[in-house]
Amino acid sequence: MCQITKKSYAGSLESSDVLVQISPNPGKGLEIDLKSTVKRQFGNAILATVNDVLREFDITEAFVSIDDKGALDCTIRARVSAAVCRAAALTDYHWKVG
């Protein structure tokens, strides 16, 4: 299991990007707070992507705040991954093919 040890961020607030903040959430499991310019249409899809990345890193306890400015799915994936690596002080990510 991957532990969120400190608060961290990744991304930006520019158009087509997303700002992801992750912080420890002792004893409270996973909490995701989503703000998005396209929340009505894509809110569920964004949450699914975020959850998918958190599962990949095996994170079960964190407070994740997402400020989305219409980012592509791959950008959300990238930003959440970067934020997790920073917040869990991971340096050797397992890059995959395909």
């Binding site: 950008t75 994936r77 930003r79 690596c85």
Partner: peptide
Amino acid sequence: KDAARFVIYHALKTI
């Protein structure tokens, strides 16, 4: 650098 690497990695794999 770390974040940009993720962005390009996922973009190349997806787009």
